[in-house]
Design a protein around this nucleic acid. Structure first.
Length: 219
DNA sequence: TCGATGATTGAG
DNA sequence: TCAATCATCGAA
């Protein structure tokens, strides 16, 4: 069964390359209900890359702290942190051999399996608002601080990332909600081209008209 | 120890 | 547009 999981080699690349290539993959969490295993699954449709020095918006910018230490460790691990007094954000550590630290923030998913459980955890019924934001994902998947530093390449854990499909079109834009290094196009979103018009995936967060983007993957 | 703040969200 | 809300960080 291991062949369906992303492995260490996948995450041992430049953080931006991994962020781009995570689009179309599947985040899976196994929960238990009355001794039955339930799969919560969402396809990754939006990510952001965060680096080390030169990336002022990154938690790792000023070096290692108690909170960000996972970003400096092995790749393919979860980095979960608490923010704004309310929300958890879920990241995957990823960096090439010559990078000191790096992580990819998972910003939006397209719900695929276990949708009713996600709706219950979020206490909403609107599919489009279920997992279209980093804080919404962790609430829908019941991910919190205890899921920090999980090995996401190990299928014996209840949280991992599966191979998905190869998207035709991925766009790069500026990252959301930061005040530094705002010029970098390190946010990646799933899109499609329909009758020559580019359409963002409907589960992407912070959708805006006239969004400025670069096409970074087109098959 | 202490004040400032944040990779957000939901309500108005 | 704005308040909620608290763990974390860096300065004192």
């Amino acid at each position: 069964m291991d062949h369906i999981l992303l492995n260490e080699n996948f995450f041992s690349r430049n953080t931006n390359v991994v962020a781009k290539n995570l689009i179309g993959k599947r985040l899976v969490k196994i929960i238990r209900n009355e001794n039955k295993k339930i799969r919560l699954v969402g396809m990754i449709v939006e990510t952001e890359a965060y680096g080390y020095k030169s990336d002022e918006a990154s938690h790792a910018y000023r070096g290692m702290t108690k909170r960000n230490r996972v970003m400096f460790g092995p790749v393919g691990r979860s980095y979960v942190y608490f923010t704004y007094g309310n929300h958890y954000c879920f990241n995957v550590t990823a960096k090439s051999k010559n990078q000191i630290a790096g992580a990819v923030l998972i910003r939006a998913l397209q719900p695929e399996e276990g949708i009713q459980y996600m709706k219950d955890y979020r206490n909403i019924n609107d599919l489009k608002l279920l997992t279209n934001g980093p804080g919404r994902i962790t609430q829908a998947f019941c991910i919190n601080k205890q899921h920090n530093d999980y090995d996401l390449t190990d299928i014996s854990n209840d949280l991992y990332i599966e191979k998905g499909f190869n998207p035709n079109l991925v766009l790069a834009t500026k990252r959301i909600g930061i005040k530094k290094s705002m010029h970098e196009y390190w946010r990646y979103i799933l899109a499609s081209k329909e009758e020559n018009v580019i359409q963002l995936n409907k589960f992407v967060s912070n959708k805006k008209e006239n969004i400025h983007y670069q096409i970074c993957k087109l098959l």
